[in-house]
Amino acid sequence: MQIKVKLFATLRENREKEMMMDLVQGATPKDIIERLNIRAEEAAIIMINGRGANSDQVLEDNDTVSIFPPVGGG
């Protein structure tokens, strides 16, 4: 299945900020994080289609996964 992956802040260093990924059925954000060599604690905030998600949530075809390191402001 095709998944759009979007990276932000420090996760963009030495990586594309946006990419399409071909993943097997049943894949989760954890698979993406591992494939991109992102350390687990760096993937502090994960969204699937703009909603907060855990790294073990099962993805569906055409989902958009956004991954952020710890960020804050205000």
Binding site: F8, R51, F68, P69, V71
Partner: peptide
């Protein structure tokens, strides 16, 4: 966040996370 993130990107780092959300 307070030790590294805010210094690197400023508060404007929030544009993308609020946009995604």
């Amino acid at each position: 966040v307070s030790g590294q993130g805010l210094a690197a990107y400023g508060t404007d780092v929030l544009v993308n996370i609020l946009n995604e959300a």
